[in-house]
Design a protein around this nucleic acid. Structure first.
Lengths: 132, 132
DNA sequence: GTACAAGCTGGAGTTCACTCCAAGTCAAGG
DNA sequence: CCTTGACTTGGAGTGAACTCCAGCTTGTAC
């Protein structure tokens, strides 16, 4: 599978895929003899994982550390778990913060709805007055 | 109230407060005759609002548009409501996305927990073997 | 009244995460 | 074979949102 196909499949630009590899966020991908990247299923999965975690705002640095630990094998499992637990906690806090803001927005919208209603009523009253 | 106090109170740096004012995200604050900013309750509220919306990732550009409309008075109420509704929708989508990722993280952590458990068991078994 | 902390301005610098570019190599169709 | 489009690299550029700085003025404590 070549880079353009992975890009299409995963919704990640080819530039970004190369960038991720360069900074060590994706382990080096196999190449054809002429040097063109040839992604396999495992690569696909790793790309999807990174994409998913990035979509939740996990910093690239943390993910680099994580994939570095994966590369070091089983003995780093505990450290990886700790990273995941920490990021989970941060994500939960973030979601809770966003939900609060969502509530505030909902409230503000409700207030605007009331205002719009009153303006409409005012308008209707004026219509009536004009008819008199 | 001077800038350092507002900064303290709202958890927004003085630099950021000046920056927000410069780009029109906060309406110009009253000054003492010598030119030093003197924030009033209304300013405080506006700062809190901006801080709150920014914390949820609403883009500065959108907020500038919004506060611009507020400055234009009642006739822009409907437009403001539309902005809020749109941003509410975006925020909701974002939260839903984050919740999905949270679920994935939870699942991954659970898998790691199983692994850690197995490693511990292995360890215990080896201990037993050594005792034999 | 003299330090010195805090305020001001315009502009430059920083960080994060890409994104684009130039210049060269490679592969498939006609 | 030759064109055309996709791939390669290293490095430069971008955009969002601050953050810092130099050089100046102002307010406060002793």
């Amino acid at each position: 599978m070549k880079i353009s196909e992975v890009s299409q499949e995963c919704g990640v630009s080819a530039d970004t895929l190369r960038y991720y590899e360069r900074i060590g966020l994706l382990s080096p991908v196999n190449r054809t003899e002429s040097g063109i990247r040839d992604y396999d299923e495992g690569d696909l999965k790793r790309v999807e994982f990174v994409k998913c975690m990035r979509s939740a705002g996990l910093p690239i640095e943390v993910l680099i550390e994580y994939v570095g630990l994966v590369a070091q094998g089983d003995k780093t499992a505990e450290m990886r778990r700790e990273i995941l637990v920490e990021q989970r906690e941060l994500l939960l806090n973030k979601i809770e913060g966003l939900e609060k803001v969502l509530g505030i927005l909902d409230h503000k919208i409700e207030v605007y709805n009331q205002i719009m209603l009153r303006i409409e009523q005012n308008f209707a009253e004026k219509e009536l007055e004009t008819e008199k």
